[in-house]
Simulated assay, not measured.
Amino acid sequence: MKPQIDRQAQLGFTLVEILIVILLFGIFMGAVYSLYVAHMRTAFRQEEVVDVQQNLRIAMDAVTRDLQTAGFLIPLQATTLNPAMSNLSTVNLNTASAKKIYTRLAADISTIGVQKLSLSVASSAEANSFANISAVRIIRPLTRNEPYSIVPQNNLFSVESIDSSPAINVKTPDKAASIEIYYKAGDVICGLDSTTSINYPETVGYAVTRNNPACGAGCLQRTINGRTELIAQSISNLRFAYLLDDGTATGKEVNDLAGLTSDDLAGLRAVRVTIIGQTMRASTPGEGPAVREVTSIVRLRNRR
């Protein structure tokens, strides 16, 4: 007798069933892919937003540090700030050292008859802070001038070494050995970033530039005596408003500084800094870049 064949168990899928399964699977995978793309887009957006926020912090820290040292040990006739009267997105400030590295001379010393000096300081830590400094200038705090300034084009001391005495060993300017110049304990040694920085005071300027392709929306640019460096990327706007002694604010709009006198500028007590950053591209088609903004009021410590 022939064995019985269970034909029901041998039945397969029909073409219609296979097509339905493929369709459902495609719908499912399409939904998963859409979620994946949305997740990745959000992740990329958040990463760019974090980068923008980090750049804003870097930019604000740099501007704040320079504004807080603006006016320090500058000549009595110089102004602390030089805001651009017709452009409130730029500012220039004056300071004795754009590097913000200072210490005091610990002992009297004279340049007469020597080409090298050992500038004594109070501690090894103070001396070591000048290890990466190429030149210094020495300023007398009471008069705010350089005791040696007979040859303005060559009044810097080149740093040669640091020793454990503690002291900063420097080479004197070319003509200093033939001139009797006395430096006193308490004179301030100011660190410079270049042996050609003959400007006193040094001028530091801030502005936004869009000429660099790597900047995206823009870069915060810091200029020291004509030499430019980029501080932060993805910066689209920079605004300054100036708070006066009488409590009023100026600089909210273009030309708000028009009509201010030099006495008004000398009376600035604080600066409101607003920095705006944005992502380089939109997160989704049809949307604009993500924009972030930080604002800080920086009080001027060295007004006169």
Rank of each mutant, 00 (worst) to 15 (best):
T95S: 08
S118F: 06
D66A: 12
D108S: 14
L117Y: 08
L73Y: 09
V114P: 02
S97D: 04
T79D: 13
P75F: 02
N128D: 15
K116R: 14
Q68R: 15
S149K: 08
T111K: 03
I150W: 05
I101N: 06
S97H: 02
R144G: 01
D66N: 12
A125C: 05
S149H: 10
S134R: 02
A122R: 12
P83V: 00
E146A: 07
I133H: 01
R144P: 03
M85A: 06
I138R: 06
A62P: 03
A131D: 14
K99S: 12
L73H: 04
R144C: 02
T143F: 01
S86E: 12
A127N: 11
R140W: 03
S86F: 04
V114R: 09
T103M: 05
A96E: 07
T90N: 08
I112D: 12
S134G: 05
A62D: 15
A107P: 09
Q77C: 03
A135M: 09
G71W: 02
P75G: 03
N128K: 15
A84V: 04
T143R: 02
I109M: 04
E126W: 05
I112S: 13
R144Q: 14
F72R: 10
F72D: 07
T111L: 11
T69W: 10
A125D: 15
M85Q: 07
P152D: 14
S129A: 15
E126R: 08
P152V: 07
Q68E: 14
I109P: 01
M85V: 12
A122L: 13
I138F: 03
L117W: 11
K99A: 15
S97V: 03
K116E: 15
N145H: 09
Q115G: 15
K100I: 07
A84C: 01
L105D: 13
V121A: 11
Q115C: 01
T103K: 02
A125Q: 14
L67D: 05
A122C: 07
A70Q: 00
F130T: 04
R140I: 03
P75D: 05
L105N: 10
Y148Q: 01
K99W: 01
T79F: 12
V136I: 15
D66E: 14
T95C: 07
I112T: 10
M85R: 03
A106Y: 09
T64C: 01
A84L: 08
P147N: 06
S118L: 08
P152R: 14
N87A: 13
N94I: 00
A131Y: 13
A135T: 07
I101E: 07
I109H: 00
K99E: 14
L88K: 08
F72K: 10
E126I: 00
S149Q: 10
S89Y: 01
I139S: 07
Q115T: 15
S89E: 13
I133F: 07
L117H: 05
N94D: 09
Y148G: 00
R137E: 11
T64R: 10
N94F: 00
L105H: 11
T95V: 10
V63E: 06
A135L: 10
T79Y: 09
K116W: 03
T103D: 08
I139M: 08
A62V: 11
G71L: 10
I101W: 04
K116V: 10
P75A: 02
S110Y: 08
S134Q: 08
L117P: 07
L119H: 05
A70N: 00
A98Y: 08
T95K: 00
N128W: 15
K99N: 08
V114L: 12
N145S: 13
N128T: 15
